[in-house]
Design a protein around this nucleic acid. Structure first.
Length: 199
DNA sequence: CGTTTTTGACCCGCGC
DNA sequence: GCGCGGGTCAAAAACG
């Protein structure tokens, strides 16, 4: 289970990869972008020229549903604000869904994730994994599931915004390095996505 | 020894 | 009101 634990460049994936695991394992073929801000239906536009689609959703309540690449089953991301438990303010953070083609299920985006659940969903023989940021006070969640039809694809959904820098960020910042090929990961991508953090 | 994973149970919203 | 689908909890095991 221990994939690349440390954000160090020395990734030791159990696979046959060794040098550049990112480029080997990750292939951002489809990213879904959904700007479900308020009322607009964040539909994805799948452009053949740039097959990069990202889906983000900001708090919601409003059905920021998006159709996934014209699949037969319209994948819908309903904002389940289960805050009624403790009467907490039902505030959900940023949401980003990314569909990638990768060999491995979980991709190391620089953050430390702790798995807290596994569930088999409908329309998908594979299981969906639920992760939570293990950083203190950071309630960012992440859900990873393989595409039912294309097992080569992995759908990763981030929910929330980190209230801290990623370990890899501080690591590389300390070393004076910048994000480059080796350190490419979703962190930089997410950074570019999360341009409008929730109030 | 502390942290994470595992796994079933529980819980909750929604549709019927 | 009930059942389904999905999300989370929590105890124990596993891991480093």
């Amino acid at each position: 289970m221990n994939h690349s634990q440390s954000p160090s460049p020395n990734f030791t994936l159990s696979d046959e990869n060794s040098i550049c695991p990112f480029m080997d394992n990750y292939d951002f073929t489809n990213l879904m972008f959904d700007v479900g801000e308020g009322g607009n239906n964040g539909l994805i536009q799948e452009e053949p020229s740039s097959p990069t689609t990202i889906v983000t959703g900001e708090s919601g309540g409003s059905g920021s549903a998006f159709t996934t690449l014209s699949k037969k089953e319209p994948t819908r991301f309903d904002c389940k604000n289960r805050g009624s438990r403790d009467g907490e303010t039902k505030k959900m953070g940023h949401r980003v869904a990314i569909r990638t083609r990768s060999k491995i299920d979980v991709m190391d985006d620089g953050y430390k994730w702790r798995k807290y659940g596994k569930k088999s969903v409908k329309n998908n023989t594979n299981k969906r994994n639920y992760y939570k940021c293990s950083s203190d006070g950071c309630m960012v969640k992440k859900r990873v599931e393989r595409d039912g039809e294309n097992a080569a694809y992995v759908i990763t959904t981030y929910e929330g915004v980190h209230n801290h820098e990623s370990p890899s960020h501080v690591y590389y910042s300390d070393l004076g390095l910048s994000y480059d090929h080796g350190n490419w990961n979703q962190h930089s991508l997410l950074q570019s996505i999360q341009i409008s953090p929730p109030s």
